[in-house]
Nucleic acid binder design. Structure first.
Length: 819
DNA sequence: ACAGGAATATTTTTT
DNA sequence: ATATTCCTGT
């Protein structure tokens, strides 16, 4: 058994102190076991709707209440700001605790907090700014121009991906294998990018994590400090962690001694391998197995009791996900009855599907369901269009999730760029964004001149302005003067005043006033002032955690059912942090590290950080009771009384790009699992025979996922036509999806869109499917994008890397299938 | 400097 | 079909 050292006290296990009863009331045995686990590492497999957040927050409250931990000894990490906020809100409703002392936030938020506290040790300026994805891309493009990198051979988007991937794998340029000249070049660019960021005092999202990880890894005193401090580490959505995030957690938890992890704190990882839907952006479900092995996890608890849905819905989810291999294994169950059947509808077209959705939604609303309790889910954003227009024409209020968020809007980013220049004039990304916006006669030529000057002088664009002569120099000089004067003038002003002065002096407002569609933009700029104001009000800027004022905490507590028996006015558990005992730290006698400096950021710097780390709301205007439209991904973590999953078609869901490998197909299945488990009472699955996609009519088969659902739970609203399974049988495709089959095949392209298809379809003789790799003697290898027509008329649209996309008559063109 | 037309690429996305 | 990006001519 691994040695554990526990601080400050060790929970004794299931023997609760009498005071924890009110906290634990209403928890089922598994939840209760998870909440009251003794010190040591634990994996909680929390199924959808099993009360995961409740367990996490109650665990923290229980640890605090029983004195097993102080607020300063807790670290709880999530992926989204929303999840972190929810945890804080629920926690402060349970206990009158000062949440300010706790480290509860996103990975990025906590890393940011750590880097600011130790900026000297990390080699960053204290007021380093954070590049979002847009900023990062423009920084890379600028770098490519500067070093004359062939953007054909090294597309900036790809470089961005490459750099982000490297960082997620914990690799600095020197760590990246350089097998060939292309790899060498990419690494060289990576290094140049790093130098540029360092020079400008900016970090990207990946850098926040990597720097923080390296800080812990390379600095014994700091690592020891945090290892001692965080007696309890809790990780939400653990299945979504990437390699670097896991490595970061390991640094916080303990050191590897003689090949074994010697931990100080206890790590509780909460996750669900069946809901892992972010492998495409680096999430590694394997971290769950690694965690169990490397941390020698003894406590594994499954939360399988579902409090959300009726059993027909859960049976469907369970049956579907059983088709995945390599699962940790889990079955959702409920004490509720079967409820209503899952309704399945086949529409003739995407239009007809949307119309049916509208009719069904209207009926639900008429029967008394709130519109906000109805969600329409789809696999990809492009599908929302038809549905939106059907809802719009019917006058049904709806809300679409996704799209640009507040702090990502162009006008807001412009304003933020000005503010960032006030904070840091050497931020070239911000400089370039607004040097000629609003237009002030500084063209591409002048900027090139300036960039050349900056490069030869090895300084920032701001500092290079003096070196540019002539008219260009005059205009540039005026811009720099504007920013510098503004910086002077805003010294000592409050945040609101700073922003107002900036909006005025920059000419942004005036510029948009003269633009025809500028009204919305001006509104957003005014909203920026409000956002800053409410940020300041929230006290405690410089921290990502949002703390409720004490009286609000107590008010929430009075209303909370979890607070029964607690005294809302009891003194706060505002215990001091454990002192860092330098003498007791092995080999740290001389260390004079500024551990967790008390330096605070200026309100402006703090606000800019906030803007970068929390891009704002992702949904359109709230308030009105509206039907919710979103992708399946966006629906994760939400629940609704009625859920429609639309576009249940082969090629769409599962997506055609995911058919090539077992892993990606299984991720699609998990995605479907997530979608199903969003529904509380009613679940509808719909698909259309024809659908307009990329300007072309496509004929899609019913999704294979239907064949994986239990017949007893389904109610077919329309007669069943043969679906993927029958196609797969007749065409010899492997049903489990190992082959790259999609089941799209050609029907006469001029068949009327709304006419029902013939009941019996025949599989194509040519054996091609969308996604098939083919070889053409003249054009080389290509991929089938679409198929049309039958027999002699059959045509295929094929995309060739060299020759573009072409329609080929299969009777004429000699195409061979590439395995 | 900027408008307008051609070329291009369309899974999912948080920080 | 459509949104975005790129490029060219004025």
């Amino acid at each position: 058994m691994l040695p554990h050292s526990f601080a400050p006290a060790e929970p004794s296990g299931l023997a609760d102190s009498p005071t924890s009863e009110p906290l634990l009331a209403g928890l089922n045995p598994e939840q209760r076991a998870a909440v009251t686990l003794p010190a040591g590492h634990a994996l909680i497999l929390a199924g959808a709707g099993s009360g995961k957040t409740r367990v996490l927050t109650t665990r923290i409250a229980w640890l605090l209440q029983n004195g097993y931990a102080t607020p300063g000894g807790i670290l709880a990490v999530t992926f989204t700001n929303k999840a972190a906020r929810e945890m804080l809100t629920r926690l402060s409703a349970m206990l009158p605790v000062n949440v300010r002392g706790m480290w509860i936030g996103t990975f990025h938020g906590l890393c940011n907090r750590m880097l600011r506290a130790h900026h000297k040790a990390t080699g960053l300026p204290q007021t380093f700014q954070i590049l979002d994805t847009q900023d990062q891309l423009s920084a890379i493009k600028r770098l490519c121009k500067q070093y004359q990198i062939d953007e054909e051979r090294y597309p900036p988007k790809q470089l961005q991906q490459f750099i982000a991937n490297c960082k997620e794998e914990g690799m600095r340029p020197r760590d990246v294998p350089q097998h060939d000249s292309v790899a060498r070049k990419k690494v060289e660019i990576y290094q140049l990018y790093e130098d540029q960021c360092q020079r400008e005092g900016v970090v990207d999202f990946g850098e926040l994590l990597l720097r923080s990880y390296e800080l812990l890894r390379d600095n014994d005193a700091i690592r020891a400090h945090y290892q001692r401090r965080f007696a309890y580490i809790l990780v939400d959505e653990f299945q979504d962690t990437n390699r670097l995030q896991y490595a970061w957690l390991k640094q916080l938890a303990g050191d590897v001694v003689e090949g074994r992890l010697q931990t100080q704190g206890s790590v509780m990882a909460v996750g669900d391998d069946d809901q892992s839907i972010y492998a495409f952006r680096g999430a590694r479900v394997g971290n769950m197995q690694d965690f169990v092995r490397e941390f020698d996890v003894r406590q594994q608890i499954k939360l399988e009791e579902n409090y959300r849905s009726y059993s027909n819905i859960l049976d469907s989810a369970n049956a579907l996900i059983r088709h995945n291999s390599r699962r940790l294994g889990k079955e959702l169950r409920t004490q509720q009855g079967p409820g209503e059947p899952v309704r399945v509808y086949e529409a003739a077209s995407d239009l007809a599907e949307a119309q049916w959705l509208v009719d069904e939604i209207r009926q639900l609303v008429k029967d008394g369901m709130a519109r906000r309790e109805i969600a329409v889910l789809y696999r990809s954003n492009a599908q929302s269009r038809v549905i939106e227009s059907a809802l719009f024409n019917a006058g049904v209020p709806y809300r679409v999730y996704g799209g640009l968020r507040f702090f990502e809007r162009a006008e807001v980013k412009h304003a933020l760029a000005y503010l960032r220049l006030l904070e840091n004039p050497h931020d070239d990304t911000s400089f370039l964004r607004v040097v000629n916006f609003p237009p002030r006669g500084i063209g591409a030529r002048s900027i090139e001149q300036l960039q050349d000057a900056a490069r030869s002088a090895g300084c920032s664009l701001h500092d290079a302005v003096a070196a540019v002569a002539g008219r260009a120099g005059t205009h540039l000089g005026a811009f720099v003067a504007l920013v510098d004067v503004l910086r002077e003038q805003t010294q000592g002003l409050n945040l609101r005043a700073i922003i107002e002065r900036m909006l005025d002096a920059s000419g942004l407002i005036e510029h948009y006033r003269s633009e025809k569609e500028g009204a919305d933009r001006i509104e957003n700029l005014e909203e920026l002032v409000n956002a800053a104001e409410s940020f300041v009000m929230q006290e405690g800027f410089g921290r990502d955690a949002v703390a409720l004022p004490l009286d609000e905490q107590r008010a929430a507590l009075r209303q909370s059912p979890a607070s029964q028996g607690l005294n809302p006015d009891a003194p706060r558990l505002d215990l001091p942090l454990p002192a860092v005992d330098a003498a007791a730290r092995p080999g740290a006698g001389t260390a004079d590290v500024d551990l967790e400096t008390g330096e605070t950021l200026s309100p402006l710097a703090a606000f800019l950080t906030h803007a970068a780390l929390e891009a704002g709301d992702n949904q359109a205007q709230a308030g009105q009771d509206a039907v919710q439209l979103m992708t399946v991904h966006a629906s994760k973590g939400l629940e609704f009384d009625a859920v429609f999953i639309s576009g249940m078609e082969e090629g769409l869901f599962p997506h055609e790009n995911a058919l090539s490998s077992q892993e990606s197909l299984e991720e699609e299945r998990r995605l479907m699992y997530v979608a199903i488990t969003r529904a509380r009472r009613r679940l509808y699955l719909s698909h259309a025979q024809t659908r307009l996609l990329h300007g072309q009519t496509r004929y899609n088969l019913r999704s294979r996922f239907f064949d994986e659902l239990p017949e007893h739970a389904l109610k077919w609203l329309t007669p069943r036509h043969p679906g993927f399974a029958s196609f797969a049988r007749t065409s010899g495709a492997v049903y489990a999806g190992v082959s790259s089959a999609t089941d799209q095949f050609g029907l006469k392209s001029d068949s009327p869109v709304n006419a029902p298809l013939p009941a019996q379809k025949t599989p194509p003789a040519h054996g091609l499917r969308v996604g098939t790799a083919v070889f053409h003697t003249k054009f080389g290898e290509g991929k089938v994008l679409a198929l049309e027509g039958q027999g002699e008329d059959a045509r295929a649209q094929v995309q060739f890397p060299r020759h573009g996309t072409k329609w080929l008559a299969l009777a004429v063109a000699k195409l061979t299938v590439v395995e």
